[in-house]
Nucleic acid binder design. Structure first.
Length: 305
DNA sequence: AGGATAGCCTGCGGGC
DNA sequence: TGCCCGCAGGCTATCC
């Protein structure tokens, strides 16, 4: 399940293969996984030129779980890995054959790039400019989860009746967190996943934002979480799953208190947490907002500030 | 309009 | 051994 750390690991592993490379061929084997747009934002038929044929790659960008391959003339290819998507780089003469390859590129330096995605929850989107991508697809995303901030999360959460876990999974609130790292971050911050978003104090959102940044950073350092499908561009699996404290550990002992970890479906996702360590009572509640008429001041004045 | 739900899609593992 | 079912889940469309 590629979430932010996995997509970032793919991006980093692609850099040496793609930066400065010129695209010698581009083939779309499954047209229905790609959508192309012109400068006016209208959908057009995908042609090799839209898939960066002839372009020189200058930049690989990422926002949340989405990757952007940007060329010197502005042409931009957006890649979303969905659940099982992979971008693989291999020598042109490689004999390894893959199933479910939906697009293939070659570079003038002799590298073949494949996009494969058995479950096809991922896809490709092409734009004439980086700006067009940002306008069409990235403007609906919240801040990148590596930049998670307490005030921004709090602003979204304080008016929401959803469980805090649902808030973390909402890409328009925060871009990049999926089911694995939502559970891990909530455990690290000792927040119960079902707690209503509007019941968290600003200080708790600050702690949660810090946990999100820490969990994601550590996972990137481990090369992402390989459960089954995830690989980076070189076919390497990631070791971050070794660090999971709760995800995939239902019924096993909590690493802090040894109580068996609980599991339930929350926000339509399998959720694992520790009922002992993650309790609302551990967390500062939000300040109660009282009606003005109920406020009394011993000295009869009105407090400012 | 926020929030919940269905559906997309394939591979794998458990149960019989 | 083999078949069937359930599950995994990011995201969009749809409904309430």
């Amino acid at each position: 399940m590629p979430e932010l750390p996995e997509v970032e690991s793919v991006r980093r592993s692609l850099l040496p293969h793609l930066i400065g490379a010129r695209i010698a061929s581009a083939t779309l084997l499954r047209p229905d996984i790609c959508e192309s747009f012109n400068a006016r934002g209208q959908p057009i038929t995908t042609r090799p030129a839209n898939l960066l044929l002839g372009a020189r790659i200058t930049q690989l960008a990422r926002r949340g779980k989405q990757l952007a391959v940007i060329a010197d003339d502005g042409r931009t290819l957006c890649v979303h890995l969905g659940m099982t998507g992979q971008v693989l780089a291999q020598p042109r003469e490689a004999v390894v054959t893959h199933t479910h390859v939906h697009a293939r590129w070659t570079t003038h330096s002799g590298t073949t790039i494949l996009f494969r995605d058995p479950r096809r929850f991922g896809g490709l989107w092409t734009f004439p400019s980086e700006e067009a991508l940002r306008r069409a697809r990235w403007s609906t995303l919240g801040p990148d989860a590596l930049d998670a901030s307490g005030p921004a999360l709090s602003a979204a959460g304080r008016k929401s009746l959803r469980p805090i876990k649902a808030l973390l999974l909402d890409q328009s609130v925060l871009a990049g967190v999926g089911n694995i790292y939502a559970d891990e971050a909530l455990f690290a911050a000792r927040i119960p996943p079902r707690l209503r978003a509007d019941r968290l104090a600003a200080a708790s959102y600050e702690a949660l934002a810090a946990s999100i940044r820490a969990v994601l950073t550590r996972a990137i350092q481990a090369g992402g979480s390989t459960l089954r499908d995830y690989r980076d561009a070189n076919g390497q699996s990631g070791l971050a799953a070794r660090n999971h404290a709760v995800y995939g550990r239902a019924g096993q002992p909590c690493l802090i208190c040894t109580l068996p970890l609980a599991t339930a479906v929350i926000a339509q996702r399998t959720t694992v947490w520790c009922k002992q360590c993650q309790r609302a009572a551990n967390i500062a509640p939000p300040p109660r907002i009282q009606a003005a008429k109920d406020l009394t001041y011993p000295h009869g004045g009105v407090e400012m500030g």
